[in-house]
Nucleic acid binder design. Structure first.
Lengths: 257, 257
DNA sequence: CGGACTTTTGACCAGGCTCAATAATAGTGG
DNA sequence: CCACTATTATTGAGCCTGGTCAAAAGTCCG
């Protein structure tokens, strides 16, 4: 009753060779947003403190489809993702799945205070992370109030994003949901944005569907609809070019960036 | 573009006379859960500190359909609801509305750190609240780390609830959503529960619909379906009797209480 | 080249939405 | 206390978006 509905098949990411929009997307497509978050974290701690912080934990690697922990597992660690992407999901008894968020490099995970995890954390693509037991982590926090405050801001930000997603799930049509999602990925990177702007999709159609409360077929149709409307272009290697950003924003119904 | 779709008509609460399930539901239907939360808050502060805390702010009253603040308003205050119920909602440009949460007596509001509110807070029924400017509130927090920690736990709890709601909105059918909602209301009160157990709905069908991502007609049909299945009973005066709790839990697809 | 996936498209179906009518409640003034 | 009115809740009929099932096309990698 706690297993994903899809078989645990493994998928490997594209190995693009050229950064041109006409060619495949490079696998090491830069995510300026992730870099910015890592930098924010480091800004709080000087180099020496950061080293002591990292020494508290251990570094690990998760391949695609590996789980860091499952729903209902006891919460033993706090995680900081240093590379890759995770998906966080809840399952209904009959296998229906809802992805409640993606975790990108630089993000913290497991800061909640419950005794058991409310969701499963699974790697979408090969990931590296730093894991720290909760006890040492809490003691470290006691000596670094600035960090504690920063983590509180993180939680508040996550809450705001979760509420935005509630509006997406409760009130938007399929094409509006997809437009919102693509802009969300794009907005992780601070401006100025590259022209043409291309976002890389680390997750497949099924994952996008489970995040947007749709089926993979409907997600495909929505991609096609946006493409035929001239709003996006599909780039080989899991890339999506945002051709008419204003049009996407209008469709997403959100406030323009 | 920021106005609710429904006209701002005013509605007054029922004035029930008898607590029997066969009669109308009393207007002052007790909410033990609210009391428990207030108590948690008070447990952190001794009587004298609590008095000083309250002296920092001012008490206000909001009638049904009055707003404490609107989406995009600058965040100037922190709120503590002492009586009544609020709904928090976001609006799409065309008037579609999503209620991202209800606020009950004892709950804090506005602890997020953004400069602008991400949602509108409107009274569902007559409410009383204590309002404290953010500056004094932050200074008070600096001297009371226990309270700061408690508020962090609150945010973490809100985040967990928002993610649960994402699963409701993304993956559950109408009757499952309603069952989940009714259990949510019921679970606000700590056991042991009264027999027969009756929850009072402070909000109307439209608000429930906007919370569950449905229309008011579908909510009505779901109520009828649960009633015909013998799971609930509708009590005059906005009451719902949970007749077969196990059945509701099975339908909601969540973990049994 | 070949096999396993993933993505895309098509045809059909159904759960929930829209529009509309009726019933039930709550508030008002006599 | 009761008729009268406004609002809310319920039910019905038909439609539409998105789900289901199935098949074809495209990718990835050995």
């Amino acid at each position: 009753m706690r297993r994903p509905s899809e078989p645990p098949a493994r998928s490997r990411r594209a190995r693009g060779r050229s950064g041109a929009v006409t060619g495949p997307l490079p696998a090491d497509h830069p995510c300026a947003g992730c870099a910015a978050r890592l930098e924010t974290f480091c800004r709080i701690l000087d180099a020496e403190t950061l080293a002591r912080f990292k020494a508290l934990g251990s570094t690990h690697r998760a391949e695609s489809h590996q789980c860091l922990f499952h729903e209902d597992d006891p919460t033993r660690f706090v995680y900081n993702l240093t590379r890759g992407t995770l998906k966080l999901y809840q399952l209904l008894p009959d296998g229906r799945r809802q992805i409640v968020g993606f975790v990108h490099a630089g993000d913290f995970l497991g800061l909640g205070t419950d005794t058991a995890h409310a969701f499963t954390a699974e790697a979408v693509e090969a990931a590296e992370y730093c894991r720290i037991a909760r006890g040492p982590f809490a003691r470290f926090l006691d000596g670094h109030r600035g960090l504690a405050r920063e983590l509180y801001l993180t939680a508040a930000q996550d809450l705001a994003e979760a509420r935005e997603q509630m509006t997406v799930l409760g009130r938007k049509r399929a094409d509006e949901r997809l437009a919102t999602f693509l802009l969300e990925l794009s907005n992780r990177m601070p401006p100025p944005r590259a022209r043409p702007e291309v976002v890389r999709l680390a997750m497949n159609r099924t994952d996008i569907a489970d995040y947007l409360g749709l089926t993979k077929e409907t997600v495909c149709r929505a991609f096609t609809a946006l493409r035929k409307a001239g709003l996006i272009g599909l780039v080989p290697g899991h890339g999506v070019e945002l051709i008419r950003r204003r049009g996407l924003e209008a469709l997403a119904g959100g406030d323009p960036d």
